[in-house]
Simulated scan of single mutants.
Amino acid sequence: MSAEATSRRDTATTASRMRLLRREFTTAPRPAPTQFVDDPRTAAPRSRTSPAHSPAPMDLGVLDHVIAAVTEVIEHTLAVAPDAGPAPTMPDEVYQWAATATSTAGPGEQQARDTIIYRQGLEHAIAMGEDTVIRRHPCPQCGTYGLLWQSAARRAVCVHTRCTTRDGGPTSWSLAQLARHHVAATNSSARRAT
């Protein structure tokens, strides 16, 4: 598959993940079940408590994620192609707009665009709880498929016992590093094929 075809596929995948994230994961969180607490004043065994305020009509963390992602793509696109025109109003359409607006940019700018889009696709999947997308990537250091997502550290960690840092700990990678490695490898293999 050519680098251009892979870029189109990655752009479509990221747009699809954004669409799913926006539709399914910004809905209002389900109310917590009724909470019961012991009331020491009345010696009543259990009493009901009610929330002090209504829940937000949507998951604000996901909304912040969507806004940050769209803003990053728009800012990058306008920096590379100031005459790109207005960005689309639908968040998932911003990726195709960016790809089209920067299609005549130099290879370095296109690779930077593809890296942002691919990284955001990984971020969208992880935001939806689908951290297995990390397992599909080889470790940039040892090349094995032994990466696992560590949500607390927000990094992919290689579990191969011989793939360690200088101090003997496991190697770990940010999503940006995985995206750079993926896009560079795709572009390199496309150049070798021609």
Rank of each mutant, 00 (worst) to 15 (best):
M1D: 11
S2N: 15
E4S: 11
E4Q: 09
A5Q: 14
T6W: 14
S7Y: 13
T13N: 10
A15P: 01
A15Y: 01
S16W: 12
S16Y: 08
R17K: 09
R17H: 07
R19W: 06
L20D: 14
L21V: 01
L21N: 02
E24H: 12
P29Q: 06
R30W: 05
A32P: 05
P33H: 05
T34C: 07
Q35P: 06
Q35L: 12
V37W: 02
V37P: 02
D38N: 14
D39G: 10
R46C: 11
R46D: 05
R46L: 14
T49E: 15
S50F: 15
S50L: 09
P51A: 06
H53Y: 11
S54M: 06
A56V: 09
D59C: 15
G61T: 15
G61A: 11
H65K: 11
H65I: 05
A68M: 10
V70H: 12
T71V: 06
T71L: 03
E72G: 04
E72N: 09
H76E: 09
H76L: 10
T77L: 04
L78S: 09
L78Y: 02
A79S: 10
A81F: 06
A81M: 04
D83S: 01
A87H: 06
M90N: 11
M90C: 09
M90L: 14
D92Q: 10
E93I: 06
E93D: 14
V94S: 02
V94T: 06
V94P: 00
Y95K: 03
Q96T: 04
A99M: 08
T100C: 00
T102S: 01
A105V: 00
A105E: 03
P107W: 09
P107H: 08
P107I: 12
G108P: 06
E109W: 06
I116Y: 06
Y118V: 07
R119A: 09
Q120T: 09
L122S: 08
E123A: 05
A125C: 10
I126R: 05
A127P: 01
R136Q: 08
R136F: 15
R136K: 13
H137V: 07
P138Q: 00
C139E: 01
P140S: 03
Q141C: 12
C142R: 00
C142L: 00
G143R: 00
Y145S: 02
Y145C: 00
G146I: 08
W149Q: 01
Q150F: 11
S151Y: 08
S151T: 13
A152W: 10
A152S: 10
A153S: 12
A156S: 04
V157Y: 03
V159G: 15
V159H: 08
T161L: 12
T161A: 13
T161I: 13
R162D: 06
C163L: 02
T165Y: 01
G168E: 04
G168D: 00
G169L: 09
P170Q: 14
T171M: 13
S172G: 11
S172L: 04
W173S: 02
S174M: 05
L175D: 01
A179Q: 00
R180C: 03
H182Y: 05
H182M: 03
A185H: 00
T186I: 05
T186S: 01
N187G: 07
A190Y: 00
R191K: 11
A193K: 10
A193I: 10
T194S: 08
T194L: 11
